[in-house]
């Protein structure tokens, strides 16, 4: 079973606010899932390379030429607090 402190640490990394009830539930559920996942620890994987991408594609490049992109107004149109030239956010505080 993972510790309450671990759950809170991970939640902090993920910028997720969890209620006390959610922390407890997460402890149980994550522990159950991790127990299942840990079966891959039984496999002999020495010398096996990791796969991050399955299709052989490397260095996909395009000519470095300027072209129109999304207009600023369009990019700002869905923002909760649009400014004239950027996104408004609360102060980072102290």
């Amino acid at each position: 079973m993972i510790e309450r402190e671990q759950v809170l640490h991970v939640a902090r990394l993920a910028r997720l606010l969890l209620s006390d009830e959610e922390v407890e539930r997460m402890r149980e559920e994550l522990s159950g899932i991790l127990d299942h996942i840990e079966k891959i620890g039984e496999l002999d994987l020495d010398g096996v390379d990791p796969t991050s991408h399955v299709i052989a594609l490397e260095n996909v490049l395009r000519p470095d030429e300027p072209r129109p992109s999304l207009a600023r107004e369009a990019a700002l149109s869905m923002a909760p607090q649009p400014g004239d030239t950027g996104f408004g956010v609360p102060s980072p505080g102290s």
């Binding site: 910028r15 990019a75 869905m78 923002a79 909760p80 607090q81 996104f87 956010v89 609360p90 102060s91 980072p92 505080g93």
Partner: peptide
């Protein structure tokens, strides 16, 4: 910040 829901009324974090 850029789209969707925003909640809370404290600092950025």
């Amino acid at each position: 910040v850029r789209y969707g829901l925003r909640a809370g009324n404290g600092d950025l974090l």
